[in-house]
Amino acid sequence: MNAAVIGRVATYVVLAVLAALLIFPLYVAIVFSLVDKPVKILTDPPVLLRDFNWRVYPDAFTNGDLGRYFVNSIIMSLGIMAGQLVTSVLAAYAFAFLRFPFKKVLFALFLATMMVPVEVIFTQNFQLILDLGWKNSYQGLIVPFLAFGFGTFLLRQAFVAIPSDLRDAAALDGYGHFGFLTRVVIPLARPMLATLSVFSFLLAWNQYLWPLLVADDRQYRTIQIALQSLVSTSPDKLNQGYAAVIMAFVPLFLLLIFFERQLVRGLTAGAVKG
């Protein structure tokens, strides 16, 4: 009994220490972002908040022209997310419900695309974007990512779990493949579609290498790429730079709070159990 209580207290202490260590870097960034006068920020970096000023955030937003970068990031991420959902749903339907020649080969090909990330092919892919005249454009940021091998795999896993009776019933009711997909499969697979949407948005929003190459014009620059120049402009704007960093983090943090359980469940269903 006593040992159990000690064990529980010890667990909480360990958890609290680890949580504090993990959060510390973000905490310091928040302190930096709220400092009123960042003159001494580099010689005497603040660990505790002394002279804080909420105005840093609206100032950072207007001075840094963050609205434009946020809009670019949102257009890019929503575009990639929506496109990946459509292409992955269609492909996953074919792999889950239809019989056709070369099915296994094509499925292997879809999975193989996971072995070819941007980092392997970016030089030639960038050349292609230049040839198409898509440098500094939304299509240059979005179109190369409109298909998603891992997303197709996750959705196929969810689709094959749908009982085949439902398919026969739908056929009797006169639904073709498209009707069955939109009226039965998509409503039933909604949890997995939500997981995939969050995952896809997260990956797109956080991209670094590709937007750095493709969108060097301020008009199409995404927030991730803008952050570095915002932080390194001048020491007396460092607080505004870190306000921008925190503002780029917060939307995804909110998404995480709402969808954390969904992400765990989706990964368990799709990938972990295989």
Binding site: L18, A19, L22, I23, P25, L26, V28, A29, F32, I41, L42, T43, D44, P45, L202, W205, N206, Y208, Q224, I225, L227, Q228, V231, G241, Y242, V245, A248, F249, L252, F253, L255, L256, I257, E260, L263
Partner: peptide, 26 residues
């Protein structure tokens, strides 16, 4: 939630946050 937090940080955010800790000047 606390331990999942880094999922919400991008490469750029994480690197700039660690720059505060590791910056050679202060």
């Amino acid at each position: 939630i606390v331990f999942s937090t880094p999922v919400a940080t991008s490469v750029a955010v994480a690197s700039l946050v660690f720059l505060i800790l590791l910056n050679p000047q202060g």
